[in-house]
Write a protein that binds this DNA or RNA. Structure first.
Lengths: 168, 168
DNA sequence: ATATATTTTCAATAAGTTTTGAAAATTCAA
DNA sequence: TTGAATTTTCAAAACTTATTGAAAATATAT
């Protein structure tokens, strides 16, 4: 397979993959393009390579920056801004985990804690089922949360070495 | 907080939460409703409680069944079909992991393996970056895949006991 | 068999999300 | 400053996805 063909496939699949994870197609495609580009790219490079508008590139690169996955880089003697993606996939993964934990898991756990305080007689099966379900989800989520915290702090070699040996 | 209010909040947040995970809002809401219902519900119960159409309930319950999260149950002497959700949150989580692995991760790893075979000179920095990136993602994904396989086979007490002690 | 209840399907529609593109704002060099 | 280059914004348009509702199919009771 030729590089150009492989690139196109990678970008397109990474985009489709992203949509299953609440990330929009274009944002994931821009990320994919930057991941395989040895050098930083400009807005115009991205527009041209992905056939998308300037506004679209602007919004999505900004979003990628807010996720901590892409950086603006200044290149000596160039007027334009360049964009570059973090290439270390372990860092990419921990960064995504960190952000999603903050944006989704933490608020959900907070809410579940409140909902567990519902009034009413635990003898009522409706109340009981509600409290049991919410409590069960909260306990599970709390454990996942702790586990993810450790992963975020760990570094890859520790993770790969110890954890995968543990999971023989 | 009253039960009715807490229920409404739980259903609405679980729906919003679902959208971040590639699950549509209504499907997640139906799932939430069934999770907190002590008894199985009919199509009409779900339509009424969530204010949605019959067709919508039908499609989304079918989808939940295909994800292995909901079962049809027959109730003695009743003409209508009833729906009931798996309440054990550990089983829910492993079931979701299993399905998403099959639907998303496994095909992605297969593709990445193919893309690594790209033609061209590794001295070319474009080829090198492509192969490095794709290879890195594939290695990471393969490890995650193995780890998830172990989790799926494990049971909750093993997981909570050993893994969380490991992650002290 | 027939009538009635129930579930399923799916074309039309509604709702939600993404993208465009041109105008406004900003940056920077001379 | 001024003006050219560049980036940002955002309302309108395009596209995508979800929902409705009524007709068709299926199941069940009499």
């Amino acid at each position: 397979m030729k590089l150009s063909e492989a690139k196109a496939q990678f970008i397109s699949s990474w985009g489709a993959f992203g949509t299953h994870w609440g990330i929009n197609r274009t944002m994931a495609q821009i990320h994919a393009l930057l991941l395989i580009s040895p050098d930083p790219l400009t807005q115009d490079d991205i527009m041209e390579q992905l056939n998308i508008s300037r506004g679209n590139v602007n919004m999505n690169t900004r979003d990628l920056i807010s996720w901590g996955l892409v950086d603006r880089v200044l290149i000596q003697g160039e007027r334009k801004e360049f964009f570059s993606a973090e290439k270390d996939i372990w860092k990419v993964a921990t960064q995504i985990i960190k952000e999603r934990k903050k944006r989704e898991l933490d608020p959900m756990l907070k809410l579940l804690g409140q909902l567990e305080q519902v009034d009413g007689d635990k003898k009522d099966k409706n109340v009981k089922q509600f409290v049991d379900t919410v409590g069960g989800i909260r306990k599970f989520g709390t454990q996942a949360d702790k586990m993810l915290d450790v992963m975020i702090k760990a570094d890859e070699s520790w993770f790969v070495g110890s954890l995968l040996k543990f999971f023989k």
